[in-house]
């Protein structure tokens, strides 16, 4: 339904997006994942016709949207990464303003505002000025404003940044419900793995302007199908244990985090006895050895050699 075709976007010095391809089908929730500066916001700005790409094409129902994005603009809703609201206006006044610019009016607008305020749980604060809202409430209103005109596609840029877990769950559930009940198509951008894992059917992973993986959750996890993630715990590590670990060819990735070590190892290697042996040899007291399910976080670590939120 909506696609990016070989999109590149150059700012003066930086290439924010490089040769990116992406598509969204009706009724899907698609995740776009990547660390700070990956190019997520740039990509969705292009997708939503806010920004012209340096090269490449944006197609909506097989028509290019670069020159004439009107048909696209009518059916998308955008939740910007920033709180794009008038702080001096009340929740209701904000909604009225944005509803009016979508040419909604009269009873219809009134009903819609009440409905959305109910959905985002702000009905009792409708008369209050946004300035007086908590961060989470502003986030929710930021989302609500984008839903007034019943968009077919909702594009959300990190809608849960900096809010408490409750508000966050509320938002995630709302998105899921909208998708289920109204077949709303959603593009959800985040750098929280858990959110994307919970919400999305398909996922794109970006880093430094490049798309480094894409597919369904399972497909992406397959990237690590031949590998396991092992967590080691001890009171302390010593130099020689770590050096010797690094020398082992079966260990593809390793990360030391305080008294925990995360290893990505080939699957069918009898690694446990080797680890135990090595610990004994270097007199390290292992407290726990744990094998975990592969997560998207691991995939990201695998693909980039970095954790997502480094």
């Amino acid at each position: 339904m909506l696609e990016l075709i070989d999109i590149t976007k150059k700012y003066k010095q930086t290439k924010a997006v490089k040769n990116m391809n992406m598509y969204i089908e009706k009724g899907e929730i698609v995740g776009l994942l990547g660390p700070n500066g990956a190019g997520k916001s740039t990509a969705i700005s292009i997708l939503s016709s806010l920004l012209e790409p340096t090269s490449g094409d944006v197609k909506f129902r097989n028509k290019s949207m670069i020159k004439n994005p009107k048909s696209l603009r009518q059916i998308i809703g955008i939740v910007p990464q920033e709180i794009a609201l008038y702080e001096d206006l009340s929740a209701e006044e904000n909604m009225k303003f944005f509803g009016r610019i979508y040419r909604l009016k009269g009873e219809k607008l009134k009903n819609k505002i009440s409905e959305v305020l109910e959905q985002i749980g702000l009905a009792d604060r409708r008369k209050d000025v946004v300035k007086t809202f908590s961060g989470g409430m502003k986030r929710r209103l930021n989302i609500g404003v984008a839903m007034l005109h019943d968009p077919e596609i909702l594009i959300m840029d990190e809608p849960t940044v900096g809010i408490d877990p409750q508000s966050r769950n509320y938002i995630l559930q709302t998105v899921k419900r909208l998708n289920k009940e109204r077949q709303m198509t959603v593009l959800y951008t985040s750098h929280y793995m858990e959110e994307v894992e919970y919400l999305c059917d398909r996922i794109y992973i970006m880093d430094k302007g490049n798309l480094i993986a894409s597919g369904t959750k399972d497909e992406i996890k397959q990237i690590l199908a031949s590998e396991n993630t092992i967590y080691l715990k001890a009171d302390y590590w010593n130099e020689s244990f770590i050096t010797k670990l690094q020398e082992k060819p079966q260990i593809h990735q390793m990360k030391v985090e305080g008294n925990e070590i995360v290893l990505v190892v080939s699957k069918d290697v009898a690694i446990f006895s080797k680890l135990a042996h090595l610990a004994e040899e270097t007199s390290v007291q292992l407290r726990a050895v744990d094998v975990k399910q592969v997560t998207l976080e691991d995939v990201f670590l695998h693909l980039t050699g970095r954790a997502l939120r480094d």
Partner: peptide
């Protein structure tokens, strides 16, 4: 700055 203007663009203002 606060991206409200972007909302207007998207609304085909």
């Amino acid at each position: 700055q606060s991206h409200i203007f972007n909302r207007m663009i998207i609304a085909d203002f």
